[in-house]
Write a protein that binds this DNA or RNA. Structure first.
Lengths: 191, 191, 191, 191
DNA sequence: CGCTAACCGAGACGGTACGTCCCGTCTTTAC
DNA sequence: GTAAAGACGGGACGTACCGTCTCGGTTAGCG
């Protein structure tokens, strides 16, 4: 059971590089993303960068893992109504998709995922986890009869989809004010 | 009365370059899009390419215009039920998003639109037109009472959004078989 | 026996181009000499330039012909002493090699002559004519006994050579004040 | 006491590039001198060339340093008569100017010196050193009374000048057979 | 506590693509 | 019918990064 304790220098370098990569991604976009800049930004030799990631897309994927923080699971005792929970989640997504750290990188991510399996894995997993929270909330609402009996998976896709659609295929991303109307359409109007 | 007929050489070059640019975009994505490759692909001198477009993004935008073909408006006399019309449109989109000519450039397009206003204009306009057909169909259905009274715009976004969502944020694009289920969720189950 | 009367436009173009070529040569040197610039300078289409000269070196050579004006032959009745005549010629050369129109072009000419037979022909001929005046003067002086019995050809080469040597192989071209000293060395001191 | 030992790769590249530059200069002249060709000739990446010299003229100047080898000073004990020494030097020059390594680059050198101070410094220095040997020999001869009392500097210029003149301004460079005649003219006939 | 192995930065290396400039040839249009 | 305009393929320019590599210099942790 040898605990290969990691060299602290390695830890330091990796950390600095991941942060630098994220910053570079946000600033320069995915096109325009330069390994050189990342290394400089991190105050690290270019060779050190390549020692840890010889694939720029893996670097990007790893850097994005840091964003991979789930919105807190609801306190099961909190007994929030399903519809409210859905509104919370969607409002959060609506915001994240415009102002969050992922926002800056979103179009690049969509593109990169089409080029690299590693990025695709990350991105699909990330999306799946986000979506799952929505599915759970809808499922709960359907089970308690609070919501009409929709297919929760399909409904979650429609709801999330609308948010991303407005962000990526139109010039006006969804606003918080429009979220209730969206929920009405998919889950039925508030009783 | 001068007809300023354009130099045929110019016509030939422009055409070849636009086609090449589209092919390059589909194959290499937006990052990885190389002016050099486009010129070679078009069998045209590199300087000729730069003579016509010294901005890669304008080239991409111009190249995409070729995709800008309207789906035929429905024959108003055809009297197709609204739900069927929606299913037709969505099934077509589901397919287009995976196999159509746009499919190949879709992720690149999303990325490029984030970099260039010209590309964004094209892409948003293109999406808006597609969406409008859906909005029209839903509106008609709601007016005749055939569909439940949803906000047609929101509904169209949810439906289109789901299709793009599955294409870009998951590893399993929506299949034709899943379309009816999706429509059930948003427009209510078939009576 | 038709006298192909020359198109006046052609005359005009040729003239403008030759002047422009000379100016360009003086300004940009032989390296840096651009056909494009010459055409622009002459206010003439680039194709017009190539119609008349498809070889840049021929253009240069032709442009230089304009400089090919002989210093006036001495009035034979003027009876200038040979030594004075030599001093006149050398002083003129000393000046021409620094301030004259040829001066600007001199190093380029030497170089170009090594690359192009056409330029070499011009340049060698030009030099020969200049030198001949010197040879004639020296020959006359030797014949009259005014100068010591030197080989006039060799002497002319030594005198001219010294002037060019100082211009091209040192950073201090020969000055007018140094000319008499030079003549002393080659033709013997003034009696 | 750090010996900052130079990277052997750098040494190798620089050496190869300098040789290639000289060869290119000899072959293509100064105009026609192509950085690209130099890199190819040296079997070195183009970027490596630019890493070391981003200025073509500095490259040329550096490349010429290799020619900068002094002709052996005469053995002072050798007691060669001044006239013989002069003949030796001039014959050597006559040959060097046609067949030597400098010969190949001579016209290019004259031109390049007019463009670049660095090249000019090299070239003028090089010429000065060559000339000095001649000046020394003549001075010695004048002091011993072996030669008539000429200005040694002027005489050296006339002698060297004649050699270069014949090489650069005529189509028949001076031959060894003509050297004695030249010396006769400048230093007086052999007693 | 000193040695060895790893990790480090610096940066050279051969490349590729960039966007610009000019080449010399050519076609088209205007006078 | 000639000239001007300018498109064409081509090639070199000098720059920026790429990903690989060699180089000494440090630093860590094991023995």
């Amino acid at each position: 059971m040898s605990h290969k304790s990691p060299d602290p220098r390695v830890v330091r370098s990796r950390q600095a590089l991941l942060e630098a990569a994220l910053a570079e991604l946000a600033e320069a976009g995915y096109a325009g993303f330069s390994m050189e800049s990342v290394a400089v930004r991190a105050g690290v030799g270019r060779s050190t960068l390549y020692r840890h990631w010889n694939d720029r897309l893996r670097l990007v994927a790893d850097a994005l893992e840091v964003l991979n923080v789930q919105p807190a699971r609801p306190d099961p005792a909190a007994e929030v109504p399903a519809r409210v929970r859905v509104l919370q989640l969607l409002t959060h997504l609506t915001d994240a998709v415009v102002h969050g750290p992922v926002a800056a990188v979103l179009p690049a991510l969509v593109h990169a995922a089409a080029q690299s399996d590693a990025v695709a894995d990350f991105w699909h997993g990330y999306s799946a986890r986000r979506r799952q929270a929505l599915v759970d909330a809808i499922t709960a609402g359907v089970e308690t009869g609070e919501l009409r009996p929709v297919d929760p998976v399909r409904a979650a896709e429609a709801l999330s989809g609308a948010v991303f659609y407005r962000r990526l295929m139109t010039d006006r991303p969804l606003t918080a004010a429009e979220v209730p109307g969206l929920v009405d359409v998919v889950l039925g109007p508030d009783a």
